[in-house]
Design a binder for these strands. Structure first.
Lengths: 110, 110
DNA sequence: TCTATTTATCGTAATATTGCAATAAACTAA
DNA sequence: TTAGTTTATTGCAATATTACGATAAATAGA
């Protein structure tokens, strides 16, 4: 079929998977790193920095924006993108607590 | 095209994206949570717990195993899966340092 | 207004992912 | 050996993702 059966899983499980999806492509990882490094970034600069075509970068930016991880401010003909710190923080907390599961585990496996 | 241009990105960026991909489906999130909760789990129990068909679960388990996040021990006719703690720890560190980028940022955006 | 610049959207092709029925493979127990 | 149990693999259909050329949309400046 090819469609994820989200209804079989908890809200939290779907949330974790959705956040992970945002990070599941190196171009989006690179975009986020660049936004942190520069603290803000014109779309065109991202296209130059990362070696993909402009429509491709635009598409990745849209996905990150849809998830709320970044926001874009129009500045004349160009658009300045930056991290949405509140959403980043929330996502980080959700993800960190998932990654920290091992602290509670007993570690006596088969 | 549809193929990710990995060669355009750093080793680290690809690594982060690959780990994220493992977490990018709620079934795999559920499997990992169950393995932590039970500390080990027979494949059949995972099929019962999560509501997907056995071949589907088997496929998700294979992906997690390929990444090294879990390992499976054959026990008679069944297979006991558990978290590979070393790989989990390493993956966690890589991912956490990515998520912690915001600590270094100045936060004065457009 | 006209032109240049920048970004978004559309359309499309190629590839990847998800899901499962059918079946094979591996093992246990009778 | 045979039957039953459990998991992996195969094959396939449906959907999602990735990438980019062409083009539209929006704005700035001449």
């Amino acid at each position: 079929m090819g469609i994820t059966k989200s209804e079989k899983f908890s809200e939290e499980q779907n949330q974790i998977a959705n956040i992970a999806k945002a990070f599941a492509h190196p171009a989006r990882v690179a975009i986020l790193q660049q936004l942190f490094k520069m603290n803000a970034c014109i779309c065109g600069d991202l296209v130059a920095e990362i070696g993909l075509a402009q429509p491709t970068i635009s598409q990745h930016l849209k996905e990150l924006k849809n998830l709320g991880l970044i926001k874009g401010n129009v500045e004349g003909t160009s658009v300045c993108y930056c991290i949405n710190e509140e959403v980043w923080e929330t996502s980080k907390e959700i993800f960190t607590s998932f990654l920290d599961q091992d602290s509670n585990a007993k570690s006596l496996c088969c």
